[in-house]
Design a protein around this nucleic acid. Structure first.
Length: 543
RNA sequence: GCCCCUGUAGCUCAGUGGAUAGAGCACCGGUUUCCUAAACCGGGUGCCGCAAGUUCAAUUCUUGCCAGGGGCACCA
C-alpha cells in the first residue's frame, strides 16, 4: 500500500514535469538501509524516452515530490531515487492496522466477478495420496486469499463417477471378492490393486450378501458402492486437512442432464468432429493442439475429455466469470485440448486458466520412496497427517512454489520440531499470547488510548514495516497465483518479532510505552493469525 | 523423437529487468536473577548449469546446448 502510494505520487510528478501520462513507475523496497525504505529506478526508464541523463531526471522528479510530508527525505543516488519515510508515517499506518484488528488487510468486493476454482478432483477409486494434498493445500489457500482480498471465489471438486474407472473399480473389487472367497481370480492389469480394495470388499461382504449375485451384477454393484465409499473417504481426509469444498459436481449428473450430448451436437453443428475407425474425433488441431483427440471410443464409450468438456460447459452455465483449474503435472498435455474444446463450445479461452503444480516425492532416510498406485504401496494423505500433523503438512506444501518438485522428507518432518518453520511462526504467536496474559496480570489493558509515536526504536520500526507488508504480499500471491509467498512472509515477520522481543521488553514500568508496545505486538499477533488461517494452519495461544 | 517442470552457498530454497545475489538448515562461538531459549546475537561461503543474443542494465527475457525429474492413449 505504501509502494502504490509512492508510485502514484511519482506518476503525478512525472506527468507534471515531463507531460508523460503512461509511465508505470515501479517502486521496490530498498535492498539496503542506506538507500532508504523504498526506491525507484524510474529515471532509467525515462532516460531512454526523454534522451536525457537519468541523474538529471531523478533530481527533477525529486524536486517535484518534496512537498509530501510522509518523507523524512528523498535522496538521488546515480539514477535512483531513494525514499526515507518519517517514523510518523509508520505510526499513523500501524494505528490503522491496530484499529482493523483481526480484519487487517481484508477487503470487501474489489470485483463482482465470480471465480470458480476446481482442484484436487481425484478419482474416487482409492484414498487421497500425497500429491492430492499438495493440490488441496494450494487450491484452498489460494481461494482463502482471494476471498480475503475481496474477490468472489469458490472451490469445487469434480467427482469422476461416470466413466470407465468405475467399471474398472468394480472389476477389481469383484476379483478381490473372488480371491477372498478362495476362488480363482485375476485382477486386471490396469485395475486397482491397493490393500484399500481388500478393506473395502471385506466391508461390503459384512454389509451385504454378495454371493447371490453373478459376476456382472456384483461387479457393477461394487463399482457403484466403491465410488461412494472412496469419495466419502477422500472428503473425510480433506476435512481433516482443513479443506472443505463449497461445491461438489458429479460426472454422473453432467451425463444425465444431457450436457455431453449438447457438446457433441454443438461440435457437430460447427463441423468440428469426424468419425475415424469407428471412433469420434474432435478437431482440436484447429485450435492449436498437436493432434485431434478422440471424444468417443470405437466401443461407444466416452473418453475423459467429453464429459470434462460438458462439465466446463456446466460451469459457464452457472454464470461464473472466470474459471481456474488446478491440475497435477501428469495433466499438462491435457491443457491444450481442454482449452480447445472450451473455445469450440463458444467460450472465451482467456476465461479458463489452468494451473499446474509439480510432483511430490516422499523422502525417507535420504531415499526416495517409490510409490505405485497399481502395486498398492502408497502412502496416503492420512498417513502424512498422522505422521507430521496437519499444520506442518499444509505449511510445507504451500511453502514451495507450485512449479518446484517438492521433496518431502518424512524423517526430517517427523523429528522436525526444532527446525520446522511452521513452529517458528506459531511460536511467535504463542509468545505474544503469553505477553498479553502477563500484561493483563499486571493490570495493563489495551482498550485505552495508545500513543504509537513512542515507538521509535529500530526494531520497532522494522516490525511495523514488516506488518504493513501483508496487503502487498497477499496481492502478490493472487497476481502470481502463488500462495507460497505467504508462508515466506510469515517467517520473515516472525523473525522480526523474535528479534524485537529479545532486544526490548514489552511490559515495563513505563505504562505508556508498555501499552504502545503491547498494541504493536497485538498487531503482529493478528497478522500472524490472519496469515496462518489463510494457509489453513492453526495459531495456538500456548505451545 | 515431441511436450512440461527444474538447475542459485555443503543441503532445502527466495529472488519473475535494476544498486554489493539473499534466507533457513547444518557447522563454530556467545546470550536466560527479566513477558515462553521451539528464541536471540556474531562468524562464510557462490564460473546464479554452459554459450550466444536483446537491453543503458540479465540470476531474471529469447535461442541453442548439457544435466535431473515428469508426461506423451480410442487411459483417467
Amino acid at each position: 500500500m505504501i509502494k502504490t502510494a509512492i508510485a502514484e505520487s511519482l506518476k503525478k510528478a512525472i506527468e507534471e514535469i515531463f507531460k508523460l501520462s503512461d509511465t508505470e513507475p515501479s517502486v521496490v523496497e530498498s535492498p539496503n538501509k542506506q538507500f532508504g525504505d523504498y526506491s525507484t529506478q524510474v529515471a532509467f526508464q525515462l532516460a531512454k524516452i526523454l534522451k536525457n541523463d537519468p541523474k538529471k531526471i531523478a533530481s527533477d522528479i525529486k524536486n517535484a515530490l518534496e512537498y509530501n510530508s510522509n518523507f523524512e527525505r528523498i535522496e538521488v543516488v546515480g539514477g535512483y531515487i531513494n525514499f526515507f519515510l518519517k517514523n510518523e508515517f509508520y505510526h499513523k499506518e500501524i494505528e490503522k492496522v491496530y484499529s482493523e484488528g483481526e480484519e487487517f488487510a481484508k477487503l470487501k468486493h474489489v470485483s463482482e466477478e465470480k471465480i470458480l476454482v476446481e482442484y484436487v478432483s481425484s478419482n474416487p477409486t482409492g484414498p487421497m495420496v500425497i500429491v492430492n494434498g499438495r493440490a488441496a493445500a494450494l487450491g484452498d489457500s489460494f481461494i482463502r486469499i482471494l476471498n480475503w482480498r475481496g474477490y468472489n471465489a469458490i472451490g469445487e471438486f469434480y467427482i469422476n463417477d461416470g466413466g470407465n474407472q468405475v467399471y474398472l473399480l468394480g472389476l477389481s473389487c469383484n476379483e478381490m471378492y473372488k480371491k477372498l472367497m478362495g476362488m480363482p481370480y485375476e485382477i486386471p492389469e490396469n485395475g486397482y490393486h491397493g490393500s484399500y480394495i481388500e478393506d473395502f470388499v471385506k466391508l461390503m461382504m459384512e454389509k451385504s450378501d454378495l454371493s447371490g449375485m453373478d459376476d456382472k451384477s456384483r461387479s457393477n454393484y461394487l463399482g457403484e458402492e466403491g465410488v461412494r465409499y472412496f469419495h466419502a473417504m477422500q472428503i473425510k481426509s480433506l476435512k481433516d486437512f482443513g479443506v472443505i469444498f463449497d461445491s461438489e459436481i458429479h460426472e454422473k449428473r453432467i451425463r444425465e442432464e444431457g450436457l455431453t450430448e449438447y457438446v457433441i451436437k454443438t461440435l457437430r453443428d460447427k463441423n468440428l468432429i469426424y468419425e475415424k475407425d469407428g471412433a469420434i474425433f474432435f478437431k482440436s488441431t484447429d485450435f492449436g493442439d498437436d493432434k485431434d483427440r478422440a471424444i468417443i471410443k470405437s466401443d461407444g464409450k466416452y473418453t475423459y475429455l467429453l464429459p470434462d468438456a460438458a462439465y466446463h460447459e456446466d460451469k459457464m452455465r452457472r454464470a461464473f466469470d472466470y474459471l481456474i483449474d488446478i491440475f497435477g503435472p501428469d495433466h499438462h498435455g491435457y491443457i491444450k485440448r481442454l482449452k480447445a474444446i472450451f473455445k469450440a463450445l463458444g467460450h472465451d479461452p482467456d476465461k479458463l486458466e489452468i494451473l499446474i503444480h509439480q510432483i511430490v516425492n516422499l523422502v525417507n532416510e535420504g531415499e526416495k520412496i517409490k510409490m505405485s498406485k497399481r502395486k498398492g504401496n502408497i502412502i496416503t494423505l492420512d498417513d502424512l497427517i498422522d505422521d507430521v500433523g496437519k499444520d506442518a503438512a499444509r505449511f510445507f506444501f504451500v511453502m514451495r512454489k507450485k512449479n518446484s518438485h517438492l521433496d518431502f522428507d518424512l524423517k526430517l518432518a517427523k523429528e522436525k520440531s526444532e527446525n520446522n518453520p511452521v513452529f517458528y511462526v506459531q511460536y511467535a504467536h504463542a509468545r505474544i499470547s503469553s505477553i498479553m496474559d502477563f500484561a493483563y496480570s499486571k493490570g495493563i489493558k489495551l482498550n485505552e488510548y495508545i500513543d504509537f509515536s513512542l515507538l521509535n526504536e529500530e526494531k520497532e520500526i522494522e516490525l511495523i514495516k514488516s506488518i504493513l507488508l501483508l496487503p502487498d504480499i497477499l496481492d502478490d500471491a493472487i497476481r502470481m497465483r502463488e500462495p507460497a509467498v505467504l508462508p515466506k512472509y510469515l517467517i520473515d515477520l516472525s523473525s522480526s518479532f523474535h528479534s524485537f522481543y529479545n532486544k526490548h521488553r514489552v511490559i515495563t514500568d513505563d505504562t505508556e510505552l508498555s501499552m504502545a508496545r503491547l498494541a504493536l505486538v497485538q498487531c503482529v499477533k493478528n497478522t500472524i493469525k490472519i496469515g496462518l488461517n489463510l494457509i489453513g494452519v492453526d495459531a495456538p495461544n500456548k505451545m
